[in-house]
Amino acid sequence: MRTRPFGRTGLAVPEVVFGGGWVGGVLIHTDDDTRRAAFRRALDAGVDWIDTAASYGDGESERTIGRLVQELPADRRPRISTKARLDLEAGEPLDRQIRRSLEQSLERLRMSKVELYQLHNPIAPATGGGRIALDAVLGAGGVADALDRLRAEGLCDHIGFTALGDAASCIRVVESGRFDTAQVYYNMLNPTAALAEPGALSVQSFCGLLDACRRNDLGVMAIRVFAAGVLATDERHGREVAVTADGGDLTAEEKRAAAALAAVGPEHGTRAQRALRFVLAEPRVSCAVVGLAEIAHLDEALAGAAMGPLPEPALAALRQVWNSDFDRGA
């Protein structure tokens, strides 16, 4: 498994990171033998980083990781990143929520610290609808201050955030210099994080985000690289939860996926491999977080990563599709 620099953390991260989330769900929805086999298969292939969150399966992802990590000798254990989703209506101070969430995560993970601890809530100019206000993140006594304290206490090595919500607010967070990493929405259906302008694309814009991360030397974890599975397969599993403003129309997502995949062509691998290789073609991305439903999906992703990034002719074909907004109206 090839590695890439992880921003200013000084770490090298595998190009493919094991996603422990709800959508893929191999660490949540399967039996223990399957979970263990997937976990060890990933480690054997050099995927030594697992990204999880307190909310994934109401802690089940973290509990599974904690059990499986304890079965390994110390020098074989993967690095772990986890996240806190704050209850913004609870009336409880955010710093207290963040601390409690990390302490509970560490208990489930059976660890004394994690390599990376991240804010999970989308960011916006004002708090509401699950989004946290920019001032609540960067202001005095806010999330960044709370995360700094946890890092100073040795409960995490680095701090990051999920760059969802309002793009301008996310860029402000990047440019604040307070965070080491960002999780960025980036796939063949919405490549805007890598663009200066959205052009013809009628999707939520994250334009300028990857450039901001590069300027400020943030490590970038690309998320939703398979668009909740729409790019990887025609089979629907009922967990295609939208995380962008335009992602709720599953039929529209499927049409965009068909146009993008047709443009790239099967000579560049399976659907999932084409989607992964697209993300790996972006040099501003440190790693792609890949959600898995079964062990075969891991093997498919590993083979796709081994093929390397998509070549320029395939990327040019995709740009033509984006310029037509995925042949919208055709």
Rank of each mutant, 00 (worst) to 15 (best):
T270Y: 12
S169D: 04
N190H: 03
G248R: 12
G229Y: 02
A200V: 14
D166E: 12
A167Q: 03
G177L: 07
A182M: 09
N216L: 09
A167W: 02
S176P: 08
A262L: 13
E267F: 08
C213M: 04
R178V: 02
S169V: 01
K255Q: 14
A260Y: 08
A232R: 01
L210G: 10
T251P: 03
I223K: 02
A272R: 00
R178C: 13
Q204D: 00
A258I: 03
A212M: 07
K255V: 02
V184T: 07
R271P: 08
F278K: 06
D234P: 11
S205F: 09
M221T: 05
G247F: 10
G248P: 02
P266E: 15
S205T: 13
F206S: 15
V243L: 15
T244E: 15
L164H: 04
D249T: 11
Y185P: 06
D180F: 13
Y185N: 07
V241W: 15
P191V: 00
A260V: 02
A252N: 15
F226T: 05
M188F: 01
Y186D: 03
T233L: 05
Y186P: 01
D180T: 14
A193I: 06
L164Y: 01
E235L: 12
F278T: 07
A281P: 00
F226P: 03
E175V: 09
E267I: 04
A242T: 06
F278L: 14
P191Q: 00
